[in-house]
């Protein structure tokens, strides 16, 4: 019976479902990026330029 069910499943629907899922995620991520404040964005963008405060040697 399980084999019959599996055989009858229309796998092509997963293509449409995948597309839908992606759009939901994309909209959520875009919304998250848009709503980020400028200060938070700038603070994070600067992170690679801040190695930390040196306690010895050169600054």
């Amino acid at each position: 019976m399980i084999k019959e069910i599996l055989t009858r499943i229309d796998a092509t629907v997963s293509a449409e479902a995948a597309l839908l899922l992606f759009f939901v995620v994309f909209i959520a991520v875009s919304w998250r990026a848009i709503t980020m404040s400028r200060s938070a964005s700038e603070r994070r963008a600067n992170m690679p330029l801040e190695d930390g405060v040196r306690r010895n040697g050169h600054a």
Partner: peptide, 21 residues
């Protein structure tokens, strides 16, 4: 790249969309 250019990444927001997409 920011290290070598000595300036922050152009758009952190864009990098978020870039990553998840």
């Amino acid at each position: 790249l920011p290290k070598a250019a000595e300036r922050p990444v152009f758009s952190y927001k864009l990098s978020i969309v870039h990553f998840w997409s």
